[in-house]
Simulated scan of single mutants.
Amino acid sequence: MSTPAPYQFDDSGALLETQLPLPRRSGKVRDVYELGDQLLVVSTDRISAFDYILPCGIPDKGKLLTQMSVFWFDHLDVNHHLLSTEVPQVLADQIDVQPLEGRVMVVRRADVVPFECVARGYLEGSGWKEYQTTQAVCGNRLPGGLRQCDALPESIFTPATKADEGHDENVSIGRMIADVGSDLALHLRDETLRLYRQAAEHAKSCGIIIADTKFEFGRVADEDTPILIDEVLTPDSSRFWDAASYEPGHSQPSFDKQFVREWLMNSDWDRNSPPPSLPPIIVEQTAAKYQEAFDRLAST
C-alpha cells in the first residue's frame, strides 16, 4: 500500500490536509499529532461554516491563526501549553517540512476541561437570541431594553458544552459546577473574564472591539491550576469589530468568515448536503479580513 502524500492543497494553494508520519487526529481546522508527552498542532487552511468543512480553503489562514495565538500567548499573563513553534526534527528528517513553517505549535499534553469558557462583553450571536426570549444569557440576568450588539454593563461568563458533532450547547455556570465541581468552575470563570478584559483593553488600543471570545483550558500532571490551551483570541474563536464603525442596533462587520457565511446564506445550498466551493473573490476577501485583524492586533 502506497504512503499517502503528506500534504493536500486546493487550486488556490490553500493547505487542506496533512498526513504526517505520526499518529493523528483531526478537527475542523487543526490536525493534531502525537509527540510522546507532547502534541504537534498543525493549523491548516480549512474553513468551516454551519458545522460543515468547506471543500476549499483560505490560503495562509492557518499561518495567521497560529501567529495570532502565539502573539496572545506571549501577551497575556497566563500559564499556557505552547512550548515551541519549530517543526520537530523527527519530521524534518523524513519529509519536506516547508509547508508546515509558520503553522505549527508544539504544546504540552493536557486533559481538556469539557467546557468552552466564553466571555461576552457585547450582546450578539446566540446571546442576543437568548436575551430576546428570556432577558438573560446562560443564567446571567441583564437589563431590559438592550439592543443587538450593545455593550453589556459588565462582561459575563457563558460556558458551553463541547460537542463532538454539531453545535456546542450554551449552559449556566450551575451546570458547569455540577459537572466539574465548584472550585474548578469558579476559577475558570474568573480566569476567563480576567483574560478577556486584558485582551479587550489591548484590542481597544488597536481600534478593535472584542465582542466575545472563547477559551479552552486543560489540566496537566502535577499542577493544580489549569493552563490555557488550543487557539487563543483568533477570528475563528472571537468576534472582532472595527471600533471606528461600531454602531449598536444591528449586526456589525467582523474580522472573520463573515463573507463566507453571507455568500453561503445567499446561495442555493440547503445546509443539509456537502457545501459548495467558494468563489475566488469571497476567498480573497476573507483572507484579507484575517490578515487585517492580525496586522492591527499584533502591531503594538
Score class of each variant (00 low, 15 high):
D11F: 08
S48P: 06
S251T: 15
T66G: 01
T286A: 04
P99M: 11
P55F: 06
A160K: 05
W128L: 06
G127S: 05
G62A: 01
V232H: 08
P21K: 02
G207N: 10
Y290R: 05
T300L: 15
D60V: 07
R175T: 15
V260Q: 04
S43D: 13
K61M: 03
Y196L: 12
E292W: 07
K63C: 10
L65V: 01
C138R: 01
S172F: 02
D74F: 00
L82E: 00
D37F: 02
L123C: 05
F73R: 01
P99Y: 09
W128I: 04
T225K: 15
Y33S: 01
V260T: 05
P280E: 14
S69P: 02
A92V: 04
S254L: 14
L100K: 06
Q285T: 03
I47M: 12
A163S: 14
S277K: 15
I58L: 09
P55T: 05
G218S: 05
S172Y: 02
M68W: 10
A200G: 07
S126E: 12
Q67T: 01
A288C: 05
A203W: 04
P4H: 04
V106R: 02
L146E: 05
S267Q: 07
S12K: 12
T300G: 14
N266S: 15
D268W: 12
D96H: 02
R103H: 07
A203N: 08
I95S: 03
V87N: 01
V29Y: 05
D93V: 00
E247R: 15
S205C: 08
L64Y: 05
L264K: 01
Q258E: 15
D51E: 09
T85E: 11
D270I: 11
S48Q: 07
S254I: 10
R108A: 09
P55L: 09
M105C: 10
V87E: 04
C56P: 03
V171Y: 02
A14L: 04
F71N: 05
P4L: 02
L264R: 06
E116I: 02
L15T: 04
L142M: 03
E216N: 00
R194T: 10
L65M: 02
D31K: 03
A203I: 08
L228W: 09
A151S: 14
P226F: 13
V41M: 14
D93F: 00
L186W: 13
V106N: 03
F50C: 11
E86P: 01
H202S: 12
Q67I: 00
E201M: 12
I177D: 12
A288H: 08
W263E: 10
I229W: 13
P280N: 14
E201V: 12
V118I: 15
I210Q: 12
G145E: 04
Y246A: 09
D31V: 04
A211I: 06
W241A: 14
P248L: 06
S237C: 10
P153N: 03
G139M: 04
E86W: 00
A244Y: 05
